[in-house]
């Protein structure tokens, strides 16, 4: 079986500035939850956008399930961007139908269960909801797909700690053995326990790629502590 994600010499340069990603080589196997960690501007979002075909690589390749980003990869990748990306004028129930219409692997029932768990009215229009609730709706839609690769950019950034717990639960709950979750965050401590593996990115380069328990076993410290040491200013 091909790895779910493979980056080969992947580089991205915006308008003659320095490289946001520089010759990145990375392979992700199936069935893990991977934390993509790095300080602001290290290239995390650039990598995520390249995976989702929102950017074109300057050089190198990104392969999802063995092929370049395109219609086929979009069927199996479920993507949560860092900001809201839904049409504000739509009702929640319309958004659910929209996702169900376009994604074959979207499970409507799962979405409605999660919406009612969080007490979100399906007849409400998105624009009437608070920022935190909008983020929850987005995450619910993204996690209601039976995808092979979930790419979550800062999934817990803007929500309160209680909702954060629910979101982590949602991730654990909907995760299946064949799926891989790649999530970027600054809040390492909150998610450390749900990660199999962490990837540190620094200035567009891969700085570390190891499992959480390897780090704890070999270094005797948490990923959070290690992160603070590696990226000390």
């Amino acid at each position: 079986m091909k790895p779910i994600l493979e980056c080969q010499g992947l580089s991205k340069q915006y308008n003659n500035t320095s490289c946001a990603l520089d010759n990145l080589n990375l392979t992700l196997e199936r069935g893990q939850i991977v934390g993509l960690l790095g300080p602001n501007g290290s290239g995390k979002t650039t990598l995520i956008k390249l995976i989702n075909d929102l950017l074109t690589p300057t050089c190198g390749n990104v392969l999802i399930d063995g092929s370049r980003p395109g219609v086929e990869s979009k069927k199996i990748v479920s993507y949560l961007p860092e900001h809201t990306y839904l049409d504000d004028s739509m009702k929640i129930s319309e958004l659910v139908t929209y996702f169900a219409d376009f994604y074959e692997n979207f499970i409507t029932e799962r979405a409605y269960t999660m919406l009612s768990d969080l007490g979100i009215d399906k007849n409400a229009r998105l624009k009437t909801l608070s920022k935190g609730t909008k983020e929850k709706v987005q995450l619910i839609l993204v996690m209601s797909r039976d995808a092979l690769l979930y790419v979550l950019d800062e999934p817990i950034g803007g929500v309160d700690p209680a909702a954060r717990d629910y979101i982590l639960q949602t991730i654990i709950n909907n995760y299946n053995e064949n799926a891989t979750i790649l999530l970027s965050t600054h809040l390492i401590q909150d998610i450390e326990n749900i990660l199999d593996r962490v990837i540190f990115i620094r200035q567009g380069h891969l700085a570390l790629n190891a499992t959480v328990d390897e780090i704890r076993m070999e270094q005797g410290k948490s990923v959070d502590t290690l992160f603070r040491e590696v990226f000390r200013c």
Partner: peptide, 17 residues
């Protein structure tokens, strides 16, 4: 495994291990 992982709020693979 999943129930335990949810309860502990940890990765299911880690619980499995």
């Amino acid at each position: 495994v999943r129930e335990l992982a949810l309860d502990a709020a940890v990765n299911p693979n880690t619980m499995q291990k």
